[in-house]
Write a protein that binds this DNA or RNA. Structure first.
Length: 524
DNA sequence: GCCCCTTTGAAGAAT
DNA sequence: ATTCTTCAAAGGGGC
């Protein structure tokens, strides 16, 4: 699997370009020692964050009613200042992290001119209003439950939400209001039992007896499709938007419908408990108890519409990249809110569906998804690479590049990469490059969703040459080798380290790690 | 209409 | 114990 490969490749050094999120955390660029230390601090802090919430839970206060701010805030977080708006958007190539040193400025607008990229003319920005990695100011509070029609959102004026002048960030990371916001954080849940039902302070006591009958009635009563029920005043995770067409396929709606049709089966029953003789179609429509949302999912759900409204992007894949970036730029407290939320979601889920297991959902759907390792290379994108090569007349040695995944010759990518790395612009910019601005933009949107990662050298250590070739462009040879991805005790898979940044098996595009003084830019 | 993409995190499966 | 895989949401896009 590319995941594993990329992991080893990263640790083997020399592929800064192939850096993924976690590499960024442990990246050794710039002030190697300091940043490494900062990265370690970040993980330590995040780990302690979870330990902290877990300890609260263990102490019998699953919902303490407050989410106090730790006093010993890490300098890491203090240093984490989301980078301000950049007028040069890499789209899929955007790095999700702010500059840990806090002193780096993003690519100045003037840079676009230096790179031969119009600042606002031919270069259409995905997010003209500002840098997408910006988390909302804490004082803006929690956005209301929204389910903006993306089309409608697209038509909205692109007024910058955070029209901060370049290089500035107008609000402190740890505003005094943050703790208030955190303190008032309700723990909305995606499950149709309201915290209001059992009290605010401890809505989901572990001792809460959940009988099938009572639970069923509760679920029916609070079904999202039944007019809100006790969902009033609750957050977006608990109060789904009015059912849309797509919602009809959602778990909530399916589940609600199943309840409405008849509560013949206990709501706590697993879906697999229903008749095995049902035809496949019906089976597919069986109540499907979905996994509880993790912290990032909750964050995504909440922030997606906002990002969509800010950007011209519509593709969820691109939006998710932005959200991932924002996620990493969130402050400790802001993330803590979502981790706490997610923890309670899990807790409630466990109570609602005691026998449920994540494996119950394996293969859910019309047909079981093929496991990636069982897929053929073609299924994993090999054909796409071939098609892409044919399309642009590239030779067999051609490698994907990001964001267009076409070839290293991609002018825009190389320019952006060179600019981001501070190196001399590449001599790759050939007139016959297929990457026109519009082309790149379109390709970003299409190619990114049309090929797998198995045959994506940039995403795989199977092509160290391509990686090193590109990384050499982004990284001066004098730079130290990347630090280990996962220092001892920081394995992101470690159950005790749910706050790990990135994922060992990240399927993300490798990103060019930002350097102090350079913003990772985007070509669109 | 199904599946992919893309993100992070959780959890189960596999090694 | 570690690594790998799947699934959560979302919706455009490919086939």
């Amino acid at each position: 699997m590319p995941h594993a490969h990329s992991s080893s490749a990263a640790s083997s050094g020399g592929d800064d370009l192939g850096s993924t999120d976690e590499v960024k955390v442990f990246k050794d660029e710039g002030d190697g020692e300091d940043e490494k230390r900062s990265s370690e601090n970040l993980l330590e802090e995040k780990s302690s964050l979870i330990d902290w919430t877990e300890s609260e839970e263990k102490s019998g206060e699953p919902y303490p009613g407050k989410l106090s701010v730790k006093s010993d805030l890490s300098p890491v977080f203090g240093k984490f200042e989301p980078h301000p708006a950049t007028g040069f958007n890499m789209g899929y190539l955007m790095a999700p992290y702010p500059y840990p040193n806090g002193g780096a400025h993003p690519l100045p607008v003037s840079m676009t001119g230096k790179m031969g990229l119009p600042a606002g003319g031919g270069l259409s920005l995905f997010c003209p209003g500002g840098e997408l990695g910006q988390p909302p100011p804490a004082h803006m509070g929690i956005p209301p439950p929204y389910q903006l029609d993306s089309k409608l959102a697209a038509g909205l004026a692109r007024t910058p939400m955070y029209p901060f002048p370049g290089g500035t960030y107008p609000y402190p990371m740890l505003s005094p209001e943050m703790s208030q916001v955190a303190a008032s954080w309700h723990t909305p849940t995606m499950y149709p039992i309201s915290s209001a039902a059992s009290g605010f302070r401890s809505p989901y006591p572990t001792s809460l007896p959940i009988s099938s009958s009572s639970l069923s009635s509760e679920l029916y009563r609070f079904s999202p499709t039944l007019g809100g029920g006790l969902g009033l005043g609750l957050g977006p995770a608990l109060v789904p938007p009015p059912p849309s067409k797509s919602d009809l396929d959602s778990h909530h709606s399916r589940y609600a419908r199943s309840l409405e049709k008849g509560s013949s089966s206990s709501s706590s029953d697993k879906p697999s408990d229903s008749s095995a003789n049902s035809n496949s179609k019906e089976q597919n429509k069986k109540p499907h108890i979905k996994k509880p949302l993790n912290a990032f999912m909750l964050y995504m759900k909440e922030m997606r519409a906002k990002v969509v409204a800010e950007c011209t992007l519509k593709e969820s894949a691109a939006i998710n990249q932005i959200l991932g970036r924002r996620w990493h730029s969130l402050s400790r407290e802001e993330q803590a809110k979502y981790y706490e939320k997610a923890r309670q979601e899990r807790q409630l889920h466990m109570q609602l569906y005691p026998g449920w297991s994540a494996r119950d959902n394996y293969g859910y759907g019309s047909k079981k998804k093929k496991r990636k390792k069982d897929r053929s290379p073609a299924e994993l994108g090999g054909n796409n690479l071939k098609k892409c090569r044919a399309r642009y007349g590239l030779d067999q040695q051609s490698q994907w590049c990001k964001p267009c995944r076409r070839k290293k010759k991609c002018v825009r990518y190389m320019e952006a990469l060179a600019a981001a790395s501070g190196t001399v612009p590449m001599p790759m910019a050939t007139p016959q490059s297929p990457c026109s601005e519009e082309d790149v933009k379109l390709e970003e949107m299409s190619d990114a969703s049309s090929d797998g990662d198995a045959d994506t050298p940039l995403n795989s250590a199977s092509s160290p040459g391509a990686l090193s070739a590109l990384s050499s462009l982004a990284s001066p040879a004098s730079e130290p080798a990347p630090a280990p991805r996962h220092p001892v005790g920081t394995n992101p898979r470690d159950a005790n380290n749910p706050l790990s940044v990135g994922q060992l098996t990240s399927q993300s595009w490798p990103r060019a790690a930002p350097r102090p003084g350079h913003e990772v830019i985007s070509v669109s």
